[in-house]
Each structure stands twice: as structure tokens, then as C-alpha cells.
Design a protein around this nucleic acid. Structure first.
Lengths: 174, 174
DNA sequence: TAAAACTTTCAATTAGTTCTGAAATATTCA
DNA sequence: TGAATATTTCAGAACTAATTGAAAGTTTTA
């Protein structure tokens, strides 16, 4: 496999992954293209590299910047703006994804606490069963929420060192 | 709020959550409906309960079974098949993680290892830089994958007690 | 075995999302 | 300032995913 083929394959795959995680395909592809480009690229170059329209390139570059996954750089003597990917993608990408997930969970926790009020102290077994299910969900969704919250605060080194080592130890002990 | 309203609200919300987590809305709604139904439901009942077509119900019930989130049950004296959801919500969460790992993370790791082979031992700085980027990603994605694998092997109590408590302590210490 | 009961499939439709490209706006240069 | 260059916007087009419903397939019963 030569460099161009490898880049192409990488960009395609990364795009597919992104689209499964709530990042649109083109946005993820632009991100991939910037990641594997040693130099900052102009909007023009992104358009050509991925064969997309000016509007599309512009919109998704802006979205990437919004998300903190890319930024504009200025090349002296150049009039155009250039773009590079944030290389520390753990910090940024994970942050973004985790925060998104948290935002999605919040309304569910709200809903769960609301529906628990159903029927008050009814002893209808249907109601009992429903409340039981909802309680279980509430527990686990709550745990997921706390966990995500902690991940948001964790940084890459903390994750790599503390967490992974801990897991290894735990696993060996059991 | 009465039981039917609560169920309805629950089904809607769960459907919305699912669609953000790689499970399509209808699939998640069917799962929710089965979760809050004390009895197993027939395809017919699912269709009526969610007001969806026969084909849609069938396809998504099959998908749920595929994902290990529901199963068919047989009622004696009945000719129809009935469906019941996995009620242990921890297992549901783990099952979703298992499937998504298989479907999404595995191919990405595969791709990363393939594209790393680019140019063999070339000392072209372009190639070097590309390999560097890919290596970084490989590390991160690999760590995330290992983490998920361990999580899947862990049980809920372990997670709730050890992991969450540990995180809390870590956070306070830093 | 045949008709009834039930399940699955799939082509066509509908709904939802993303992309294009040309026009409008903004910025830079001389 | 005004011509050239660069960026942004957005309505409609193109594309993708989800859904329908009718027909084909399968299993059961009598």
C-alpha cells in the first residue's frame, strides 16, 4: 500500500466511524484529511482532496472549529486561511463525544423521575412492575451519567495510566 | 400521571435515546414497549402498540434479537410467536457495547493496522508523519477498546462499587 | 392435502439528512 | 476606492435511511 492509498483508506474509514458517533461523514473525513496532512490545508485543498463543494467544505470546517477539533492558522504572505487538526484528539474528540452523550442522557433521567410518580402508592402489580423497571433503569442510567461526568474531567494521561493500570490489576486479582 | 401515560412517555424517550446510541428509534421503542409489558407480546400487539406496519415490526424485532436485546418465547396453546425484552438493564447496556465494538471499533483497528504497513521502512518524512498520526490513533482507539472489553467482563456490582468509588477518590485527590 | 394462521421479504414510498453551487457578503491589495 | 480574492449563506437537489403494504413463503391444523 502506498501513501496515497493509505491516506484514502484512512479517510474513508474515519468518516464511517464518525457517522456512527454522531459526527457527520464529511466532517470526520475533513478531520482525517487534516490529521494526516503534515501542512495546514486551505479550504480549496480540502475541497479538492475530498471532492466536495465549497459550501460543504466551509460548513464542515466551521463545525470542526466549533467542536474544537480543528483551527485556523495564518500563513504569512498568504491571503487564504489554512486549517489544521488538533493533534491531541483524545482530549478534544472524547470530550466532545462524552459531553454530547451526557446531554442526551439528561432528559432521560428527567423522564425517569417523572414517570416514577405514576399511580402514587398503588398496589396494582402492573404499576409495581413498571416502577421496578423504571427504578432499575434509573440506577444504571444514573451510573452511566456519573461515569461520563468523570471521564469528561479525566485527561489523557490520567486515563492511560491510572485507569488502565487499575483494570489490569483488578483483572489479575479476580 | 397514569400508567398508560407513563408508558407512552417512557417509550418515546427511550426511542429518542436509542437513536443517539446506534439503535434506531423504532427498534428502541419496541424494546421499551417490551420492557414495560409484564407479558410477552405478539408481533400484532407490537404493531398496534406503536402504530407501525407489519414489516417494520418484523424487521426491528429481528434486529433486537440480533443484538441480543430480545428473544422469542413460545406460549403453549398459542400458534403465534411472542417476544420478550432482556430486562436486566445492565446486560442490555453490555450487549449494546459488545455489538458496537464488534461492528465499529474492530474494523477501525483493522484498518489502522493495515495502513500502518504503508511504505515499509521508508524514511520519507511524509510517510513518517503519517505513520506517527496513525500510531497515535491506534493507541487511543486500542485503549478505548480494551477499556470496553474489561467493562463488558466486569459485573454491575464491581462497576458500581469499585470503579465509581475509585473515580470519586481519584478526583478528590487531584 | 388444502386452507388458515402466521412470518418474512422487498419494491416502492416517505422522511430525514447532507451537499451543491451560485449569489451575497466580507476582506485585502494596489 | 474599486477590483480581485476569499468566505459565508441557503434554497433546492441529491442522497440515505426508515417505513409501508402487499405478495410470497412457511408452518400448523383439520
Amino acid at each position: 500500500m502506498n501513501l496515497d492509498e493509505a491516506r484514502e483508506r484512512f479517510i474513508q474509514s474515519w468518516g464511517a466511524l464518525g457517522s456512527n458517533w454522531g459526527i457527520n461523514r464529511t466532517m470526520a473525513q475533513i478531520h482525517a484529511l487534516l490529521l494526516v496532512s503534515p501542512e495546514a490545508l486551505s479550504a480549496e485543498e480540502v475541497m479538492e482532496g475530498l471532492d466536495i463543494s465549497r459550501g460543504n467544505a466551509n460548513m464542515n470546517l466551521r463545525a470542526l472549529i466549533d467542536w474544537g477539533l480543528a483551527r485556523k492558522v495564518h500563513k504569512s504572505g498568504e491571503r487564504k486561511e489554512f486549517f489544521i487538526a488538533e493533534k491531541d484528539i483524545w482530549r478534544v474528540a472524547m470530550q466532545v463525544i462524552i459531553e454530547r452523550r451526557k446531554r442526551e442522557i439528561a432528559p432521560v433521567l428527567q423522564m425517569l423521575s417523572e414517570v416514577k410518580s405514576v399511580g402514587g402508592s398503588s398496589d396494582d402489580p402492573q404499576v409495581q412492575a413498571f416502577i421496578q423497571s423504571v427504578d432499575d433503569l434509573d440506577t444504571i442510567v444514573g451510573q452511566a451519567d456519573s461515569f461520563l461526568e468523570l471521564l469528561v474531567k479525566a485527561d489523557q494521561n490520567w486515563f492511560a495510566n491510572t485507569l488502565l493500570k487499575l483494570f489490569t490489576k483488578e483483572k489479575l486479582n479476580n
